[in-house]
């Protein structure tokens, strides 16, 4: 009996407490039949990577509005590489200016969703990409 369920870690790096987006997305993913590991506010890159590995997630979803993404995301990607876990897809959302998006995609963040993104787009993105990896 096979019963594969996509697992996603929804995490909030940085110190800001605006978790409306993260929670709406978490709920939408659950309603799309995924398992969402939700770890709450103020997550360090180390905590996020360690959690992603222990939970064996397919996707890490980062939500950040503090403006510290250019500092935290590269650190996180580096840790993922060190832990040989770059097969985990990383996506992000929040207030991230266009020029930063280009930079972040270069270091391996697969997709960045800006405010106002339809949750169905995020679900589709995950389904497409997780299938490819498997």
């Amino acid at each position: 009996m096979k019963n594969s369920i996509i697992r996603v870690l929804v995490a909030k790096p940085g110190l800001d407490g605006h978790d409306r987006g993260a929670k709406v997305v978490a709920r939408a993913l659950r309603d799309a039949g995924m398992e969402v590991i939700y770890t709450g506010l103020r997550q360090t890159p180390e905590q996020i990577v360690e959690t992603a590995i222990q939970e064996d997630v397919n996707v890490i979803g980062l939500s950040i509005l503090s403006g510290a993404h250019m500092h935290l995301f590269p650190k996180l990607m580096k840790l993922l590489k060190e832990r040989e876990a770059i097969d985990i897809i990383v996506m992000a959302g929040g207030i991230i200016p266009g020029e930063d998006i280009v930079e972040l995609k270069k270091i391996g963040i697969k997709e960045i969703f800006t405010p106002g993104t339809d949750t169905n787009r995020i679900i589709e993105f995950i389904k497409e990409n997780v299938k490819v990896v498997r």
């Binding site: 110190l15 403006g67 510290a68 935290l72």
Partner: peptide
């Protein structure tokens, strides 16, 4: 503080 990295003076 280690938690402050990347956040100092931001908002």
């Amino acid at each position: 503080h280690s938690m402050s990295h990347g956040e100092v003076g931001k908002v």
